[in-house]
């Protein structure tokens, strides 16, 4: 972003030309779910390539990952492969043998164990790149938009924290310089005291000023909503239903799905209702564009297929002898829909 850009251009970059935070969230949740549920190196590689394309196409507006992706990817594939090879003795293709009396690592080193390790490493790396793309695409201020409206107080806390992080860092630097002028050197654990305590106290003093400014601007002037007994009762019932459903699913009872889905929908409705009672205004509005709808629909396209396909098509276990993982072309094609956020160039 060059310094010659006008406020209008900055506004366009920040608010109008990019996808909304909600569209990104649905894309992220869909891609993460598909990655976790289809544990097969061929599908994982396909998702990784798709996410890598989106990562490079998206305009960096949020936190940028500070390491080299190639180096990290190599590390994340190699280390689990070695670890699994040393600790797991299953598999028919024996590459080498370590003395059996060696604790934990003794026994045969098999190709199947290495492939399983590398496959798990690939899965983790794909998830990491996926979340890194999400972090890269959205600045912290956009992430705040994902806070449910019902949690507006906590949204303000997060906003204050994000706003004051650079200020607190600068304050820390000022205190450090002041201590250095007095000839103080940062040494050992106790050396941090003269830096951290003034930082904490000045931060809390600023909190008092922020609170006074908030009250002066009318924060809390509408009065707190009375503690809703009905809402609390509803939340308790919803939580209990969702929990019961989850437990029943864990022990293999199909009826659990009904209780889980019912509980979740009921709780989400309560949160939505609580949010409707909150009135607030935004300084910068972000408008939904047709492209947001396209991305959301494209992200959800593979979902029905996922429910229809059998685990044997989706999952891959390299034991007892290494074979080629199964590949369902229809599922592969459906995963390509996740490319959508990277198809349009942001201006």
């Amino acid at each position: 972003m060059g310094s010659e850009e006008t406020p209008e251009e900055l506004q366009a970059i920040a608010g109008n030309s990019a996808l909304t935070a909600h569209a990104w969230l649905i894309w992220l949740l869909a891609a993460a779910t598909f990655t976790i549920l289809s544990r097969n190196p061929l599908y994982t590689t396909l998702i990784l390539l798709v996410v890598a394309v989106v990562y490079h196409r998206v305009r960096p507006r949020g936190a940028v990952f500070p390491f080299s992706w190639l180096r990290l990817g190599g590390f994340m594939l190699l280390i689990p492969a070695l670890f699994y090879a040393l600790s797991l003795s299953s598999g028919n293709t024996i590459l080498a043998r370590l003395p059996a009396q060696w604790p934990l690592i003794g026994g045969p080193i098999t190709l199947e164990a290495m492939v399983l390790g590398a496959s798990n490493g690939l899965l983790l790396f794909t998830l990491l790149l996926l979340f890194a793309t999400f972090n890269r695409a959205l600045p912290a201020s956009e992430l705040i938009r994902l806070t449910p409206r019902a949690l507006h107080h906590l949204g303000i806390v997060v906003l204050i924290a994000l706003t004051y992080i650079p200020e607190t860092l600068a304050q820390g630097q000022r205190i450090r310089e002041a201590q250095a002028i007095r000839g103080y050197e940062l040494k050992g654990w106790r050396g941090w005291r003269p830096l951290l305590l003034p930082l904490l106290i000045s931060g809390l003093e600023r909190a008092m000023e922020v609170a006074e400014a908030m009250v002066a601007r009318g924060y809390g002037s509408t009065g707190e909503q009375p503690h809703s007994t009905r809402r609390q009762m509803g939340m308790l019932v919803g939580l209990a239903a969702a929990f019961l459903g989850w437990l029943l699913i864990l022990v293999g009872i199909v009826w659990g799905w009904g209780a889980l889905v019912g509980g979740i929908l009921w709780l989400l409705w309560l949160v939505w209702r609580a949010g409707r009672q909150v009135t607030f205004s935004r300084y910068q509005q972000q408008t939904w564009q047709p492209w947001d709808g396209v991305v959301i629909i494209a992200s959800l396209v593979p979902l029905p297929l996922l429910l229809w396909l059998t685990p044997a098509t989706l999952l891959y276990i390299p034991f007892p002898r290494l074979t080629l993982p199964p590949f369902e072309p229809l599922w592969g094609a459906a995963l390509l829909a996740l490319l959508t956020p990277g198809l349009r160039t942001e201006e």
Binding site: H153, A211, Q232
Partner: peptide, 22 residues
């Protein structure tokens, strides 16, 4: 939502924000 449903004053919100930043 339940924790927030109890009264949160401007001072607590600001102090929490600053301590979260630290």
């Amino acid at each position: 939502l339940e924790v927030q449903g109890q009264v949160i004053s401007a001072k607590v919100v600001a102090a929490l924000g600053l301590l979260v930043a630290v």
